[in-house]
Structures are given as C-alpha cells and as structure tokens.
C-alpha cells in the first residue's frame, strides 16, 4: 500500500524527522541519521558556521535523500524570526523553514502570538513554514488558515524526554487538521514515538533521545522501527480499549 507523507508537494517515505544538535561528533550524527531512515533533518541556523570548513555540519548532511529544514532557534519575536528565515534561505538554499520562536530561554516555550505573526509574513514570502507550537488546537487552525505547510505541536518541553504529556490536545489537533501534524519535542523513547503514530500523527521529530543515547546509531534504528510500527498499527485500526471485563451476569439480561 502506498502510504507516503506529502508536505508541500514533497513526498516522504519516512515519517521520522530528526534534529542535528547534541551529538558528540558529526560522524556519529551522520551515522545515526542514516540509520534512522529520516528524510528531513532540522539544522539550527545559529550553528551554521561557514568559517569552519573542516568541521562544517553541512558536509555530514550532504546525502541525496536528506532534505534540510533550517530552524530559527534563538529568535525571540516575529521580526527576528523573519530576519533569520531570510538568512537561512540564503545560507542553505532552501525555502523550507522550521519556525520556532521561543522568547523563554529556560523551557524554550514557543510564543503563539509571534509565531502566527511571523508565519503569515513568511508564507507570503514563499517559505514552506513548519511552525513549532504548543499543542493548542485553535492556534493550529489559525496557522492552517495563514497557509503553513504543517503544524508541529509539542509532546512536552523540548529535550525533556517526558513523552506525550499533551496527549488529549494532540488528539484534538489530529482530528481537526487538514494539514500534516508532526509531533515535535519531548519524545524520549521509541515507545513514545510509536504512541504518537498510533494516535494518527503524520510524523514525529526526534533529536535529544537519539543524540544523547548511549548508542545513538542503534537508538536511531529503534526509533525508525517504532515509527513504522506505530503507523502500521494506526492504519490497521487498533481494537477498542475495554476498561471493564464483561460481566457474566449482565444487568440487562432480563430484557432478552
């Protein structure tokens, strides 16, 4: 069965998106990304260093199947985000953009107001915008209305590995969305990724859990399998969960 994910007319056969930060070295990162089967990797614009020829991260991402998704990490408002987006487009020759505006440097909580403002401008400027946001169903609809290519609600705070703490809201977002829903941030274990996919998420984005694992390459592979399994389960329709055993002497037996 053909079950590809399409974002802005681009086809993805892998539903596992990955980050590039936090790895101990570029080679391990490259190996892990290849093992994960990912086709979309996000790169922080602030880490791109053209002066650092020897250890340029981009050299390790130079694979045909890897699409780059520059992110605006570090900006605090819409204006800075727009500036960063233009810079990223110039530096990385792509109009794809993970829009992240977190004015709170402690928990890196995304600013919904500035994100919506920036998204509107950037879509008009021809960017393919994937905004990182709270699991806020109304915000997702508002972003959809301004023309973003997908939404990226968080499962829990970035880098926390806490899993899908926003589950109830993610379910509403998935139910209501006309564009792909990518669950980003907080996914700390393959089981979390599988759960997200079983819920009907279109994709997940994982970074910390792979980068900081004892063996990042094996962990990347584990995530790959979890995402495939979760997606397969979703398509196969899970059985309903029964909270009580069926009573052997039903209360309504007298009716039959």
């Amino acid at each position: 069965m053909n079950d590809n994910l399409i974002i802005a007319d681009t086809l993805f056969s892998s539903r596992l998106f990955t980050g590039t930060g936090k790895f101990g070295n570029h080679l391990t990162m490259e190996e892990a990304l290849l093992a994960s089967g990912t086709e979309l990797v996000t790169v922080a614009l602030k880490r791109i260093n053209p002066d650092e020829e020897e250890e340029d991260i981009l050299q390790h991402l130079n694979h045909k199947h890897l699409r780059l998704l520059p992110n605006t990490s570090g900006v605090r408002n819409a204006e800075e985000a727009v500036f960063a987006a233009r810079l990223a487009r110039e530096a990385l020759h792509t109009n794809w953009l993970k829009l992240e505006i977190h004015p709170d440097p402690k928990y890196l909580m995304p600013d919904p107001i500035e994100t919506l403002k920036a998204a509107e401008i950037l879509v008009k400027e021809g960017f393919i915008v994937l905004p990182y946001i709270h699991a806020d169903p109304v915000l997702c609809k508002r972003l959809e209305a301004v023309g973003v290519a997908a939404v990226m609600p968080l499962g829990s705070p970035i880098g926390s590995n806490m899993g899908l703490k926003t589950m109830e809201f993610l379910e509403i977002i998935i139910e209501q969305s006309n564009i792909p829903v990518i669950i980003d941030a907080g996914i700390g274990a393959p089981s979390h990724a599988a759960a997200a996919m079983e819920m009907g998420a279109d994709a997940v984005l994982v970074n910390t859990a792979i980068a900081v694992a004892g063996n990042p390459v094996n962990m990347a592979h584990a995530f790959k399998m979890a995402v495939i399994a979760g997606r397969m389960a979703y398509l196969a329709k899970l059985g309903t969960v029964k909270k009580y055993a069926e009573n052997s002497s039903p209360l309504t037996a007298f009716l039959s």
Binding site: K46, E52, G74, N77, E79, A84
Partner: peptide, 13 residues
C-alpha cells in the same frame, strides 16, 4: 563536540 558558533547577530532586527 566543541561548539564554536551558537548564535548569529540579528543586525537588522
């Protein structure tokens, strides 16, 4: 991994 660069100057912002 030594990180040399983790910022960009938002000169116009």
């Amino acid at each position: 991994k030594p990180v040399w660069k983790d910022w960009f100057l938002m000169k116009n912002a």
